[in-house]
């Protein structure tokens, strides 16, 4: 019984692995659904693929008339700046490949404004992207599982202790109730 419950706990823990999802950012009537490939978890030294799907609730956003940039910065120093809708035949989709030089928290700015006549609202979307260290050429390389365990040793130790106490509480043998005469 104890082994089975322990196995159940371990299976639950095994499932704790990051997977992917989407991020929605909005400025006024214009919003973007963003996904970063792979895993929504960029790694330094390896290309990350940003996919942005725009939506203007007024329906006026037109990539052909939009002048905008996709900028990535680290500590206020721009490392990359690309035209927002470089491929105008892809509708309201914008894709960008970024290779982050090293680990850190980068700031991504997506801004756009209409060329000429004001047909849609200018927008600015700013968010942070945490980049972990890759293996090659990065002095701040990801320390891996052992480093993660060392960083969170106290928390993990407390959690493991709590888990053992709960298992003991749940699986301890019960004394049969005394019969009431």
């Amino acid at each position: 019984m104890k082994l089975r419950c322990l196995a159940l706990f371990l299976v639950g823990w095994f499932w704790v692995t990051p997977v992917w999802g989407h991020v929605v950012l909005a400025d006024g009537t214009i919003g973007v659904t963003m996904h970063v490939d792979p895993d929504d978890a960029p790694v330094s030294g390896k290309p990350s693929h940003f996919s942005l799907w725009f939506k203007d609730t007024t329906g006026h956003l037109d990539p052909a008339r939009c002048q905008g940039t996709f900028t990535v910065a680290l500590n206020d120093q721009a490392i990359l700046s690309q035209p927002l809708f470089a491929q105008i035949d892809t509708g309201l989709i914008s894709v960008h490949d970024v290779t982050f030089p090293r680990s850190g928290v980068y700031t991504v700015r997506i801004n756009g404004a209409p060329r000429g006549l004001m047909t849609f609202q200018p927008f600015l979307l700013v968010f942070s992207v945490r980049v972990t260290g890759g293996e090659d050429g990065d002095q701040t390389a990801d320390p891996g599982l052992l480093g993660w365990v060392a960083d969170h040793g106290t928390t993990l130790g407390l959690g493991a202790t709590a888990g053992v106490v709960i298992l003991w509480w749940g699986l301890r043998p019960r004394r049969p109730r005394k019969k009431v005469p």
Binding site: P18, G21, H22, V23, F127
Partner: peptide, 13 residues
């Protein structure tokens, strides 16, 4: 709050 990708990972876990 400006760390959306970490929240994606937590929510997915």
């Amino acid at each position: 709050a400006d760390d959306p990708l970490v929240l994606v990972a937590i929510g997915d876990v």
